[in-house]
């Protein structure tokens, strides 16, 4: 227990060497990794979304690829393509960028739905099928997708069903003045990223994931999760409630958070804490209930909802 606690602390510290001033975002990225989930970062450009993904990949000693999504991106650009080998006239599969441990897909809403769905399928099944042959992806496999909430022109917003594939959706937010100054001062991000040393091996990550599975979740907490899910389905102002997959995501994320917090058991506070990143993109709320931007609106709706559910 203390062993894994140390490992995770190292990991978090290491990420924050590069990704300065936003411990919360770093935490969620690790939670997502431990829960075998994918992360959706929704925020304005230039705030360090890509940096976070890179830092995480670097710290874990895992393969990392970045795909910039554009509207002319094709599924084969992601998954890979079968080519004829001119020497022995055989078909040879050339794996795409998705065959790596951590994949950063920038501006995921810019690609066409066809491409989006190809990748999202891969996220769910951990395998891709190209020309009738199935190829297994690497484990651990984690997608960090980003999208821009401000610019909507020429985008294909992800439908709710596909948003559901992401375990967490987070915002990063602007850094505080002090941290921004520090970022400016230290300069040369690329170099610092290069200098970052991995602290966890892939096997260790797999071990931590299994440990996260074993985190104790009391029965009363399951009831609490069910109650929260039930509340979303009957709440006013929410058009689409939480799916059972959403409930499952709540429990796995809470377990991972508990592990990151150095516990081998979940407490109700874990569930409340993961509720916003887990649920806010899964619920379809009536817009303009609280006078906030859409993303804040949905987060606020989740907060308000939690206040109606009695805690165990």
């Amino acid at each position: 227990m203390s062993d894994s606690r140390e490992k995770l602390n190292n990991l978090l510290e290491n990420i924050q060497k590069v990704f300065v001033g936003k411990p919360e975002a770093a935490l969620w990225s690790v939670v997502s990794l431990l829960a075998r989930g994918h992360l959706l970062i929704e925020d304005v450009p230039g705030i360090g979304k890509t940096l976070l993904g890179q830092a995480l990949a670097k710290c874990v000693d895992a393969s990392f690829r970045r795909i910039q999504f554009t509207n002319d991106l094709l599924p084969s650009d992601i998954l890979g393509i079968t080519l004829v080998n001119p020497q022995d006239h055989s078909f040879e599969f050339k794996p795409g960028p998705i065959f790596s441990h951590i994949v950063l897909t920038d501006e995921v809403n810019r690609a066409t739905p066809k491409t989006q769905s190809a990748m999202l399928e891969a996220m769910n099944d951990l395998q891709v099928t190209v020309d009738g042959r199935t190829h297994v992806l690497h484990v651990p496999f984690m997608v960090i997708a980003t999208q821009n909430p401000v610019e909507y022109h020429g985008t294909f917003p992800l439908p709710e069903a596909q948003l559901d594939r992401f375990l967490l959706r987070i915002r990063i937010g602007y850094p505080e003045a002090g941290f921004e100054k520090r970022i400016l001062k230290e300069g040369d991000l690329a170099q610092r990223l290069k200098d970052l040393k991995p602290v966890l091996s892939v096997e260790q990550v797999l071990g931590l994931q299994e440990e996260a599975d074993r985190v104790r979740l009391d029965d009363s907490l399951l009831d609490y999760i069910v109650a929260i899910a039930g509340a979303t389905r009957s709440a006013k102002g929410i058009k689409l409630g939480l799916s059972p997959r959403g409930s499952l995501a709540l429990s796995t994320a809470a377990k991972a958070l508990a592990l990151v917090s150095g516990r081998d058991y979940c407490v109700p506070d874990d569930i409340k804490r993961v509720a916003v990143p887990v649920m806010s993109h899964r619920l379809l709320s009536d817009s303009n209930l609280y006078g906030l931007a859409r993303i804040e609106e949905s987060e606020y709706a989740v907060q308000a909802l939690l206040e109606t559910v009695p805690s165990p």
Partner: peptide
């Protein structure tokens, strides 16, 4: 204690 508060809160 509001019903929605966890013991820790």
């Amino acid at each position: 204690r509001e019903p929605c508060w966890t013991p820790r809160e």
